[in-house]
Design a protein around this nucleic acid. Structure first.
Length: 236
DNA sequence: CCTCGGATCAGCT
DNA sequence: GCTGATCCGAGGA
């Protein structure tokens, strides 16, 4: 389901307007969107399958206490990339409105060889997103860009069922479900949101709208040795 | 300056 | 399922 013809625009690239909307909604609609990083001739691409919204008046939001040197990107234009470091990894967010953003938590690898895009830190490491990319405007398009589909590719029409739940690693996040994921997608990080299991597991008449679960593979296989680190220092 | 704790992840029980 | 590595940012003294 999902309107396949909402194609008001001609370009598949996400524009400023897409991001300049309520954060939770942007987070939800980013599911299914293609995220590309690197040179146009050889980009690393994933399909976003899990996100989290960080809204205003939320203590867990990095921008909660106003602008600082670290979070200044969060006050940039809608579509600005906010990359921060935690422990030893980096996480990427897309700014919606000033002081609010969407954390990219996981992606389904579309580029051969891409590994471990499950989890915000792994997603960045796999794609090659670094602190250098902080402040990038993905609407203008550069090393990092977002699109509904690949160039010349046909519209897939629909992203499948979406499940929501509390955010990961946030205390008292029980207020409302701001974590979104594609139901049944094997690349969604754990713990899985409520409703996830119901889609793939035991559900007599679950086959509703196409087997999102056709891929009965191990959730997180690690091609140790083959795919390699995927850490290949991307450009510059 | 010092303290606290984290939008994580890997590894072990 | 739980713990610890690891280290920087933010805030208070």
């Amino acid at each position: 389901m999902v309107g396949r013809s909402r194609t008001g625009g001609s370009s598949s690239r996400l524009g400023r307007r897409f991001f300049d909307r309520p954060t939770a909604r942007v987070a939800r609609e980013l599911l299914g969107v293609l995220l590309s990083v690197g040179p146009a001739r050889d980009p690393r691409v994933v399909r976003i399958v899990e996100t989290e919204a960080y809204v205003g008046r939320d203590p867990a939001n990095h921008a909660f206490r106003g602008p600082t040197r670290r979070n200044r990107s969060m006050f940039g234009r809608p579509g600005t990339l906010y990359v921060y470091r935690i422990h030893q990894v980096v996480c990427a967010n897309l700014v919606t409105r000033p002081g609010e953003a969407v954390l990219l938590r996981a992606g389904e690898p579309l580029t051969p060889g891409l590994v471990g895009p499950s989890g915000p830190g792994r997603l960045c490491r796999s794609l090659g997103i670094a602190l250098d990319d902080d402040g990038t405007d993905v609407v203008r398009g550069g090393r990092v860009s977002l699109a509904r589909r690949r160039p010349g590719e046909r519209d897939r029409g629909g992203r499948g069922a979406v499940v929501a739940g509390p955010r990961i690693g946030i205390r008292r996040a029980a207020d409302r479900p701001l974590r979104f994921a594609l139901a049944g997608n094997p690349w969604v990080s754990r713990p899985r949101p409520p409703g996830w299991a119901g889609i793939t597991a035991a559900s007599p008449r679950s086959s509703r709208g196409g087997g999102a679960s056709s891929r009965t593979r191990t959730t997180r296989r690690r091609p140790s040795g083959g795919g390699r680190s995927g850490d290949r220092t991307v450009g510059r």
